[in-house]
């Protein structure tokens, strides 16, 4: 992970993963809205990404996915403040972290 040759493949995989997660979580938000059990909360999560550009990509991906939304990014402490529609694990909030790590770091 992280060699120069594998970066374009990670970029392509990232695009497809992003589109897949956008579609899935849009359907999930629609289901939750119809069911009526939403419970928004603000949560601080850790990230393994170090560079600013990769953290920016991660924050933008989180915001593009319906149901999760980035409020703040702390570059030095490697922490993201996110708002989530229903309580869920950290791995369910940032499933694309490994693609971004392979793409930039």
């Amino acid at each position: 992970m992280g060699s120069n040759i594998s970066r374009p493949f990670y970029a392509i995989a990232y695009i497809f993963a992003l589109l897949y997660f956008i579609a899935m979580s849009a359907l999930n938000v629609v289901y939750l809205s119809l069911k009526g059990t939403i419970q928004p909360e603000v949560k601080v999560i850790d990230t393994i990404l170090k560079k600013e550009i990769s953290q920016t990509f991660l924050a933008n991906s989180i915001t593009l996915t319906p149901g999760t939304l980035t409020i703040d990014v702390d570059n030095k402490a490697k922490k993201l403040t996110v708002s989530i529609l229903t309580p869920r694990d950290q791995s369910a909030i940032i499933p694309f972290e490994k693609y971004i790590k392979g793409m930039f770091e």
Binding site: I22, A23, S25, A26, V29, V30, S33, L34, G36, I38, Q39, P40, E41, V42, T63, L64, T65, P66, G67, T68, L69, S83, L85
Partner: peptide, 29 residues
């Protein structure tokens, strides 16, 4: 569904975030 959900949820904590989440569905559509 998204426009229905925007008007449906009232007076819950973090209402603004919930509405932004629902608007994410509008973005995807």
């Amino acid at each position: 569904v998204a426009s229905f959900a925007l008007l449906r949820f009232q007076k819950i904590p973090h209402m603004l975030y919930a509405r932004l989440h629902i608007l994410g569905v509008v973005d995807a559509a």
